[in-house]
């Protein structure tokens, strides 16, 4: 305690997060320049925005109250179409995913099968469902069939990949033990692999159903059927009160689905 006051420094600075000053400053200045440029290129057309403002107000006002009654029949049609689309594409997507997922697991499949299945997965993951939907509409014509194809392909990219990863991460000693009993390949899959991956896969399929419903609401915008098509029509006809009603219905169904899927996943695991 007898050390003189001056022996201890009286200032302290927090050491910087990035140690090298050159790197630090180039990151700071670089991001500043980028942000300036990016904001600069955002050509805000104020006149157009001012023009749009009353429209925006009208749109928000349309929520109070939304109009559920005028286009009720069309809305029901759209919603059911979306639900059917979500169910069928989930089922079909998963049915296709199982063999592909098995083939894409390194510990199960021979090398050439592995590569083939991985490239299928990679291919279907590359593009968003909506781009797939555009092409599906070109090929299959307008309507829910195109949406169904697009969502099924999306499901393969999601589900087969996770299934393959899950199989690759199984407990190898359990698999070995079954193999040691002299089980055949199918028996081995059935007794050693399936019990280990099943609970998570059931959970994921519910989750994917949830995703497919959400996506089914947008594939309609490019002609893939479902509630998205109804919504798009409502916007094009400036029927904002109907659009508001549709949006609320979508939000409602998504919330219900999210809660059920969360609950189901907990229950399965």
């Amino acid at each position: 305690m007898s050390v003189a006051e001056s022996d201890f420094p009286s200032s302290w600075k927090k050491p910087p997060f990035i140690k090298s000053p050159l790197l630090r400053w180039s990151i700071i200045i670089g991001s500043a320049i980028y942000l300036a440029l990016a904001f600069g290129t955002m050509d805000v057309d104020w006149e157009r925005a001012a023009e749009g403002l009353p429209r925006g107000k009208r749109f928000i006002a349309a929520f109070f109250p939304p109009n559920f009654s005028d286009n009720l029949g069309v809305m029901w049609d759209g919603i059911f179409e979306s639900i059917w689309m979500a169910i069928i594409s989930t089922v079909a997507g998963i049915a296709l995913s199982v063999p592909i997922g098995l083939g894409a697991a390194k510990n199960l499949a021979p090398n050439w099968v592995y590569l083939a299945c991985r490239s299928i997965i990679g291919g279907s993951r590359t593009f968003p469902e909506i781009i797939l939907a555009i092409f599906a509409v070109k090929l299959f014509g307008f309507g829910p069939f195109a949406g169904f194809v697009a969502l099924s392909i999306g499901t393969i990219g999601f589900y087969a990949k996770l299934l393959a990863e899950d199989i690759e991460n199984i407990n190898p000693s359990q698999a070995e033990a079954i193999k040691a009993t002299g089980a055949g390949w199918w028996q081995w899959i059935n007794y050693a692999i399936q019990p280990q991956v099943m609970p998570r896969m059931i959970g994921l399929s519910v989750y994917r159903l949830d995703i497919n419903f959400r996506e089914s609401a947008v594939v309609g915008i490019v002609g893939g059927g479902g509630i998205g098509a109804t919504l798009n029509t409502a916007f094009e006809r400036y029927e904002f009160d109907t659009a508001a009603a549709i949006l609320l219905i979508i939000i409602g169904i998504v919330m219900v689905l999210e809660y059920t899927s969360g609950y189901l996943r907990k229950w399965v695991q």
């Binding site: 955002m42 805000v44 157009r48 023009e51 749009g52 429209r55 925006g56 749109f59």
Partner: peptide, 8 residues
């Protein structure tokens, strides 16, 4: 619909 087409 509100802001018009564009980046914004």
């Amino acid at each position: 619909f509100i802001f018009g087409p564009g980046v914004l």
